[in-house]
Each structure stands twice: as structure tokens, then as C-alpha cells.
């Protein structure tokens, strides 16, 4: 045994204790009924209308959230690139600063902003604009998801776009390409690895989150994460909860292999 594999010890211990064993337990629960016999019912339960509806809403929310994050990130990252090294890293720092605050606290702050008597409605009232009641709605959940996961998209896009050589852009400009053309022919294709890892980092957690929906949706909107949480905490049907979790994991895995397959094998996709 060489020294290097010894260094992997803590990692192996960690992964075994906190990922592999719990995963096996979940899978065991998923395939047993409450009286202990084998069953596929917990897995098939995903296809009942109630669960499908929650799953559809989760997928939709995750897709919308990812799209908004992409649309917001590109202009931001382009601007950061233009700021150069010092200004750029300061902007990135400002962007990730809110991540130092606990995520529940940030959601509670959004609840304050969006509530009936909240800051948003106060501002609208002052400006004599019509009230826009989005507290406890699907819109509120998506706002919360975007706010939470936007930094991940920005950071991974920033990594790829910042690496693009200025020469490439200058050459394109010399040859008469306008800004739009430069973006679509050079920046966009070269940022694909960052975009893909950004998509994974935004899509997966927003797909599986449940706290955001609890806090900003007022318990009126069910993501699949909320259904699973209730199976564990309220109904105490751990078998069904595990079954749904397994299906969700498989779904996420499939969507991840889909993005991985489109990944350009030549370039390494860097997350940070």
C-alpha cells in the first residue's frame, strides 16, 4: 500500500459512512412494504396523479429557475469580464457575499419582502402602482429559487468566460463581427462547459429543494421535495418516502448524464 491510498482513507470513511450506507438503507426501505415484505409499490407510487403533479411542478420550477439564472448570468458575467482582474474579482466577491448568511435567513428575508404587508407592497403603494400580491404563490417560490442558486451559475460561467483569450474577440472584431455575432459565435460556444456545470448546480438543487416552497409558498404549493419530507416527518411512511426519493434520484441522474453527454470531451468543465 502506498502513501497516496492512505491519504484517501478519510474520504473513503466519509463516503462509506455518510453516503454509501445511508443510500443502501434508503434503497432497502424503498423496496420493502411497511410489514417488511418485498414490494415495488413505493416506486410505482410516483405515477399516481398527486405525485406526478408535484413532480411536474418541481421539474417546471427547476427548468424556469435554471433558464432565468442563465439569462441573468450572461450579461452579468460579460460585465464582470470587462471590469478586468481587480474589479472583476471584487464583483464576484460581492455576489457571493449573501451566501455567507444562512440560507433559511435569506428565505425569511424574502418572505418579509413579499408578504402582504411587506416591503414590496409598501414600495408599490408609495409609487401609487397597483398592488401585486405574490406572497405564497408559485412566483414567490421561483424568485426564492433563483435568488438562492444564481451565484452558482454566475461562478461557473465566470470561470469559463474569463478564460477566453482577448485575442479571439479582437480578431473577430477585426474581421468585422459585431457584438451580437461575437457573443453567439465565440463567447457562447466557448462557455458551454461552464454553462453545463452551472445547469447541473442550479437544476439539481432546485429540483429537490423543499424549504423554499415551505417558506415562500406558504405550504400551498407542493414540490416533490415537500411530498417526501411529509412522508418522513408527518405520515411516517418511510417506505413510501424512500421510494419517491429513489425515483427522484434516478430522474436527476438521467438529467445529469444527459448534460454530461453533451459536454465537450476535449475541455475540462470546471465548477469553481
Amino acid at each position: 500500500m502506498n502513501k497516496r491510498s492512505l491519504l484517501a482513507g478519510p474520504y473513503i470513511l466519509w463516503i462509506t459512512g455518510f453516503t454509501v450506507i445511508p443510500l443502501c438503507i434508503i434503497i432497502k426501505y424503498a423496496f420493502t412494504s411497511r410489514d417488511g415484505g418485498f414490494t415495488a409499490e413505493n416506486i410505482l407510487a410516483m405515477f399516481t396523479p398527486v405525485h406526478l403533479k408535484a413532480m411536474t411542478f418541481s421539474t417546471l420550477a427547476a427548468v424556469i429557475c435554471t433558464l432565468i439564472c442563465i439569462l441573468l448570468s450572461y450579461p452579468l458575467v460579460m460585465a464582470i469580464r470587462r471590469l478586468g482582474l481587480r474589479g472583476g474579482s471584487f464583483s464576484v466577491f460581492i455576489l457571493i457575499l449573501p451566501m455567507w448568511v444562512n440560507f433559511i435567513l435569506r428565505l425569511l428575508a424574502w418572505q418579509m419582502i413579499l408578504s402582504n404587508n411587506g416591503i414590496l407592497s409598501m414600495i408599490l403603494e408609495r409609487l401609487r402602482l397597483p398592488a401585486w400580491d405574490i406572497s405564497n404563490s408559485k412566483t414567490a417560490i421561483i424568485i426564492g429559487l433563483v435568488y438562492d442558486y444564481l451565484p452558482y451559475m454566475v461562478l461557473s460561467l465566470h470561470n469559463s468566460i474569463d478564460e477566453i483569450e482577448d485575442d479571439l474577440i479582437e480578431a473577430a472584431r477585426d474581421l468585422g463581427a459585431n457584438g451580437l455575432r461575437i457573443f453567439f459565435r465565440i463567447i457562447l460556444p466557448l462557455s458551454v462547459p461552464g454553462l453545463l456545470s452551472g445547469i447541473v448546480m442550479v437544476f439539481v438543487p432546485s429540483m429537490t429543494s423543499f424549504v423554499t416552497a415551505n417558506v415562500l409558498g406558504g405550504g400551498k404549493q407542493q414540490l416533490i421535495g415537500n411530498v417526501i419530507e411529509e412522508e418522513f416527518m408527518v405520515t411516517m411512511n418511510w417506505n413510501l418516502g424512500s421510494g419517491l426519493s429513489v425515483i427522484l434520484m434516478v430522474f436527476v441522474l438521467i438529467s445529469m448524464t444527459f448534460t454530461a453527454r453533451n459536454d465537450d470531451p476535449g475541455s475540462e468543465s470546471k465548477v469553481w
Partner: peptide
């Protein structure tokens, strides 16, 4: 009854 109730509850929330 618990199973029925929890399926009704999920239906309501969904």
C-alpha cells in the same frame, strides 16, 4: 384511515 387521510392531504396540498 391514516393512509387515506394522508393521501387526501397530499391531494389537497397538490
Amino acid at each position: 384511515t391514516t393512509d387515506l387521510l394522508s393521501s387526501l392531504w397530499k391531494e389537497l396540498k397538490a
